[in-house]
Amino acid sequence: MNLKYFDAHLHWFINSAFADRLAENIGDRSSGEYYIDTYCKDGTLVGGIIMGNGDIHQQGINIPDNFYYCLGLDLKERVAQIDDYFDCIEEHLMREKCVGIKIYPGYIPIYPNSGYYDSIYKLLVRYNKVLSVHTGMLASLSGKLKYAHPLHLDDIAIDYPSLRIVMCHFGNPFLSEAAAVLERNKNVYVDLSGLIEGPFDAQKFMIEEKNYIELLKTWIQYIGDNQRFMFGTDWPAVKCDIYTEFISELFPENDIENILINNALNIYNIKGD
């Protein structure tokens, strides 16, 4: 199955043992060059959004055509002194390639609705950029899950009704709470990255994990608006082409092109290079 897709949630780590382990687990190598060489070669990957990690001064450098980034605030020492980096953050948002900011509650022990990030949310509204929020399960045992519950996004959505908010990973495994937040807040959207991690066969997985699949479909149908869901892989957590097969099984055939490409372009207000 050769489906064209726009990867709205991927990571290009630099010198990360964690990313190297993830990539090795699926038979890939953890680098932006490898990602482009592997997944763009047959024309199915049409672009993507890099979720930033590490030093904010180094993010967004040498982004290829049709790729964009969310400035990632994932370092505790940076987040602890966020006001000191406000000017730098604003400079990123002035760039066309920067389509938003990604925060990492759970990995960072700060509730996203605590008021701590209010200056950042106001800045995003001013520049008409997107807030992406990690929700749900954590890859690290050192993080604290309570901070990453999707219910916290309800407060932000209500307090900032003109702010577009992306709930990364559909709040998995808190799917019912995630769906409740989405149902009542039309400015909240979902990327479907990170629902599986590691090597897998899409068709075999659909059979063996049919209860999980039905649960996902139930809450997707509950939302009743497939324009609010978009494809993302969380690479290097999974092989991108195989993940398209899995996500495509969750939606009607006539919605697949929107899920895999168009919705992300609309939600992140991407006009193209």
Rank of each mutant, 00 (worst) to 15 (best):
N172K: 15
W219K: 14
V188K: 01
G47K: 14
K122F: 04
E245Q: 04
Y121A: 03
K204P: 00
V238P: 03
T44K: 08
K122V: 04
D225E: 09
G272H: 02
A180M: 10
P105Y: 07
D191V: 03
Y111K: 11
Y121M: 02
Q58H: 14
L265W: 03
Q227E: 10
Y117K: 12
I259Q: 03
T135F: 09
Q227W: 06
T233N: 00
L195C: 12
V79G: 06
D87K: 13
A23Q: 06
A180F: 14
Y34W: 06
T233V: 05
E257K: 10
R78C: 10
M137P: 06
I103Y: 08
Y222N: 15
M167V: 02
L123S: 09
G136P: 02
Y117C: 09
K4Y: 09
F246A: 01
F174K: 09
I270Q: 05
K271R: 12
I158P: 01
P150T: 07
C168T: 07
I89S: 06
P173R: 07
T218D: 14
I259E: 04
M167E: 00
S132M: 14
E197A: 12
K122H: 12
I49A: 01
Y212W: 13
I261T: 04
D7L: 00
I26R: 03
R228Q: 04
D55E: 09
E183I: 15
I158A: 10
Y39G: 03
I36C: 07
L73F: 02
V238Y: 05
L75R: 11
D20Q: 13
L175D: 04
R21V: 11
R29F: 08
S16G: 08
Y111F: 15
L260Q: 00
Y35L: 12
E90G: 04
T135D: 00
L71W: 05
E253A: 14
V190K: 02
C40D: 10
F246S: 04
Q203R: 09
K122R: 15
I103Q: 06
Y212T: 13
M51G: 05
G232L: 01
L141E: 08
C40R: 15
Q59W: 00
L216G: 08
V125N: 11
N269F: 05
D255A: 15
P236W: 06
C168V: 12
I14D: 09
H169D: 02
A264V: 01
S119N: 13
G171I: 14
L73E: 08
D7F: 03
V133P: 00
E91G: 06
G194C: 04
I207A: 10
A237P: 01
A179Y: 01
S30G: 08
Q59I: 01
N262M: 03
E183F: 11
R228W: 02
Y104V: 08
A148S: 10
S176T: 13
E96L: 10
P252S: 08
V130H: 11
E96T: 12
F6W: 03
